[in-house]
Every structure is written in C-alpha cells, then in structure tokens.
Design a protein around this nucleic acid. Structure first.
Lengths: 347, 347
DNA sequence: TTGTACGCGTTATCAG
DNA sequence: CTGATAACGCGTACAA
C-alpha cells in the first residue's frame, strides 16, 4: 500500500484521459479548457494528490517563483522582522523565500549570495554587511532584479528601500531639545555603516539649527558588551550629558545596562532615546522612549519595489525612504531639578 | 557588451573543448577526470562565471539540496533564533533553507506547507501551530523526511527535537524553593500547547516533592497586552505570591509590565523567573533571572536528526530532548524582611 | 486540444 | 579506466 511514488503530470493525464498539455493548462489557468475536461483533470489531481514540481516548472518556463533574501544576521530581531514583512508580502502572490545569513561577514556574504543565485531566483533582496557593498558586482552580473534594503551602499546603483535616517535622528533631537536638553551624547554602534553616519549627520544638523553645541559621539561596537563598556569608559572621563541617544537596538540595551551599573537613574539623571521599538521597552523600568522603524513596511515596500521589476519590467532606479516615528515613553524627561549636577566619580 | 545570457553547461563544454558530461563530472567531483581536462574546465567555468542551475540539477538527480522550514511566526525571536541555528548548520553542507510562516494559524500552516512541499525539499523542519499537528498527514503523504521541532504533537509519529520542559520547570522551582518561596504563581501563555502543559506538570511535581502546596496557574494569552491585564486581574483578587514563574518570553515581559504598573518591586515584593534568555534581560532593572533554552542547539540538533534520514537513511523514530539552564540574575531573592506583607489594594 | 520539442544538468550506456 | 553521446526528469509552450 505504501511505496507509491510521487505522481507526475503524465499520470494525472492518464487518469483524466487527457493530454499532459491539458492538465498543465487547467492547473496553470493560462488557456481556456472545456469545463468537462477541467473537471476530470481536477478530479484526478485530487485523487492522486498531485502537485506540480516547482523546480521543473521553473526550469521550463524560465519564470521563477522564489525570492532570495540575504541578511547580515538571523539573530537580530530587526532583520527577522523585515523578513517577516517580506514573507508576508510575497507569499500572497505565490512566491517563496530562500533565506540566508551573511553572519556580518563580507566573505560569507559573497559565498551565500553565490549559492542563492544558483537558484535563479526571480529577485534578490539584500541587506549588505557594509557600505562597500561588494555584492553589487555579483548581483549585476547575475542580471536578476534586486533591491537593497535598510543598509545603503556608497554606490547607489540599485533600487533601495530604507528608512529616512536623518529624519529619524531629527525626531529624537527635537524631542530632547524640547525637554531642555542641550548636552547630549550619541552612542553609535559603528561609523562604518552609512545609516549610522546618516543618523549622526541628522543629529548634528538638528543641533546646529537649534543653535546648540554639537553632541559628542561614542562608537560603541556591535555587541551589548562592547557598548556597555565603551559607554562606561566614556562617562568615567567626560562630563555627564543630560540626554543620550542610542543609535541601534543593541546600543540601547548597552546604554541601559551601563547606566544601571553606574547607578545613574533614567530619566532623573539621564534621559534616553533608544533606537528600534521592541516589546520589552514597554516593560522596562522606566519604559523606553524610542525611535520606531517601520519594519513591516520595509519588507512590504521592498517587495513592491522588486515586484515592479519582475512583473512590470521597470528599469529606472528607485529610491524609497520611509519615515520613523517617535514613541514617547518614560525614559525621557525635562532637564531640571532632579538632575544631579555631580559627575560620575571615577576612582 | 551587455545582453550576455547566463551560460549553460554546454557553453562551458564548448569553451573547454570537452563534453558536457566531463564538465558535470569535474564540477560534481563524482567521477575521476584527467587533471589536464579538469583544469581546462575550471578555467572555462571561471571565464564564463558559470554556475549550475540548482533547479535543473535537482530535477535530474532527484537529490534536492534545500530544506523547508515552517515556523508559527517570524516575529518571535525564539523562532528566528532556531532558524538561525538551522541555517548555520545546513549551510555548511551546501543546503539552503526555504522559510515560511504559518502565522499561528492552522489553515495557513496547511497552505504554506503545501507550497513548501512543491519544491520537493530534501527535508522539512516544522514547528507546528498546535498539538493536533494537522500537518502530519500531509507530511507523511509527501514521503519527505521531516522533524518536528520545539512544539510536540500529541501523536508522536515523527522525529522530535525539543527542550526538556519538565526539567526546565524544575530548575525554576528548585531555585525559588531554595530561596524560601512557598507561594508561587505560574503565568502560562495558553494551556493549549503541550510544552506549556509539560512545564506546568514539571512545576507541580517539583512542589509536590518539596512538600509544598501546588502553585496557582494563570492563563495569560499570547500577547503582552493580555498577559499584562490577566495578571493584574489575578493579583487584584488573590493573595500576592512571593514568587512568579513566567512560562514564555511574552508572558515574562507581561509580568514585568504588570508588576511595574501595580507598583510592586522586583525582587523585593515578588521574585520572578522568566522564560527564554534575551539580551534585554541583562539590562532590565533588575536584571532578570531566566530559564535559557538552547536555541542554537535546537536548530543544530534538528538538522543532525534530519540529516540522518536524508543521507544515512535512518528509519527508526528519534526523540531528542535538550536541557535548559538557569541564568540567575537580579529578579529573584530570598523571601525575607524586605517583602511587604500587605496585599495589593484593589479599589 | 494535443503531440512533442525544449530547458539544463545528470547519469546510464557505450566507445576508445 | 577515461570520456563522449544520448536519454532522461517533469512541466511548459508552441505548432499542428
């Protein structure tokens, strides 16, 4: 009773007593078929549990129904939320996604992209590991449509979908400035990434326009540990700011951990604006004011963009910038009486 | 200069002046080829930037190098961390993953699984949306190897890789009991999931063995909002426990948020053991004691398990249970003087 | 509506 | 034992 091999289109044709072409036409719905025959085919399909082999279908038709997605890491909820948005968007149009991680490494990115391209995907979505975007050449050579998401490469020879980082930074600044903060510290992950630099440049501009001194910048690395220790080091040797802007989700956590260790209270001693909005921020003590990136939109728009190339044959370059929003919560407060003017004592 | 189509194996053969079979043999490495010819082939491959089409390769050879992965949600870092582990594991052996989300919905699970199976993957990894595991029939019919991860189905007719939920629960209990807690509340997401029930049964057993009264259970739902409000409601009408065990990451956050709102301090008023270990727990105030699930291991072992079926042709059922560990941090303290004996006032 | 060539890499078969 | 030729897997597309 077992040992039943997976049925092919021929066996369906045989059972329905039609040609394979007819079966294909019924299933693909691209040619009209007599209702009688169509019914017979559908019956046979159901009886056999037939499903077309996508590999074969893609091979013959040349039309792939798979999108390759390459992200720097699958352990960062920011990236996986974008993937969630992409999957949600493409799935409704019959596409599937092949996902790979470049592990924040340029060489791995190259290898994984190469593997992805061997599937001849209908399109590629990539979040590059860095600005240099070494993958560009490979993508151009592959001649498959692609869109760069979130991280912007130096050479803008591609469709890009990202947030407006300058605008996001300005939101954070205006909020702090409105609360009377003049002395602000910016905790960046790494200046090697263009969107981090864009956030910083937005902050600089906002403070210039408010006629305030430019904020100081700390480069704090990509992990919680480095972020936490770098900030502690900085605070030990500099005058304490009244407000801090953290430029990524990991630096946000690092800042909180560091301030806790130093016994500094948020927002009484220091106000904090975090980056990326996560559920835990609503449970933190205090709740964390944060810049919210529209992650689902990022994924959905990336697909909209890619889709235009795949299905509508668009060829002009497209550049999409989505706006972040500010989630005001408990970690930011007016500069005032409760602020202790003493600096951290570093023995 | 453009308009260069993707080269096929024939053009490589032509350029290297050998047959397509030889090219295939050189690239696949499954037949010995004279070094001279091999060199010529490799040269041509490099010159043309040739890469075999995986769809064609899979079609003819019948050996697929792709694993289908179906998870309940891509917005939950617990699931995506498992995916990270899977990707890491399979990637090193030349496999890619197709990822889909069932959106916590049985019907969507069915549809997505069906789509995944049409790729004729070498294997399937699935985290079912519920105990009934309706996907089982489809998977058995497909005759592709599969492994059920994390969520255990009622009918254990499949390889399973999951954590030892009873053991995890016991870790949490022993910790609280050692700190003198006798009055413990368990905040569960939903009793509909077998692993939640297993955790509860582990807790019950641990308290029985310690000759303590059985903990109370609150079913708090799957989102932060429900968790938070359910707990608040419970605390308003019941005597306050000295310790709380939260059984999922979302309930952990919900408990913290709820306690904050009620003005209860952790761990002075209530000790808390959370489930799942995330970076933010190290930055929370206080830092959160939590049960850490070995997420990377879950992915890696799931692959090890699937791999045995795919490549070694194993047929016996396998059941793997991994151990969680307890991360002791600041949210749990000895029951004692600082505990305020007054109950929450509910007006 | 159907017969069948085709896409492309693999493999069975056969020649050297 | 190496290498070439041709059949093949399966769904699609085009001519008939």
């Amino acid at each position: 009773m077992a040992e039943r091999k997976r049925p092919s289109i021929r066996e369906v044709a045989l059972m329905a007593d039609v040609s394979v072409a007819t079966v294909s036409n019924v299933l693909g719905g691209r040619k009209m078929v007599t209702p009688t025959l169509a019914a017979r085919v559908n019956e046979a399909v159901k009886a056999l549990g037939y499903q077309a082999d996508r590999a074969a279908s893609q091979l013959r038709s040349g039309r792939a129904r798979v999108i390759a997605v390459l992200v720097p890491s699958l352990d960062n909820p920011f990236f996986t939320s974008i993937i969630a948005g992409i999957e949600q968007a493409v799935q409704s149009e019959g596409y599937d996604i092949i996902v790979a991680s470049s592990n924040n490494d340029g060489e791995t990115e190259r290898k994984r992209l190469s593997a992805l391209l061997s599937w001849r995907p209908a399109g590629v979505m990539i979040l590059p590991v860095d600005d240099r975007f070494a993958a560009l050449e490979m993508l151009e050579a592959s001649e498959s449509p692609f869109v760069v998401v979130d991280r912007l490469p130096l050479r803008l020879r591609a469709d890009t979908v990202a947030v407006d980082n300058q605008h996001a930074a300005i939101l954070a600044c205006n909020h702090l400035v409105a609360l009377g903060h003049r002395d602000v510290l910016v905790v960046a992950s790494t200046l090697k990434l263009a969107n981090i630099r864009a956030r910083i440049s937005g902050i600089r501009r906002a403070f210039r326009q408010a006629n305030l001194p430019e904020p100081k910048i700390v480069e704090a690395g990509l992990s919680l540990e480095t972020a936490s220790s770098q900030l502690a080091g900085w605070l030990a040797t500099n005058e304490r700011p009244t407000g801090i802007i953290a430029l990524t989700n990991f630096t946000t956590i690092g800042v909180i951990a560091s301030l806790n260790q130093l016994g500094l209270r948020i927002p009484d001693d220091v106000s904090l604006v975090g980056f990326d909005d996560y559920v835990w921020m609503q449970a933190a003590t205090p709740t964390i004011t944060a810049i919210r990136q529209p992650v689902e939109q990022l994924g959905a728009q990336a697909w909209a963009c890619l889709r235009e190339r795949i299905e509508d044959g668009r060829t002009e370059l497209r550049t999409l910038r989505l706006h972040c929003t500010l989630q005001v919560r408990g970690s930011t407060a007016r500069v005032g009486k409760s602020h202790r003017p003493i600096t951290v004592n570093n023995s």
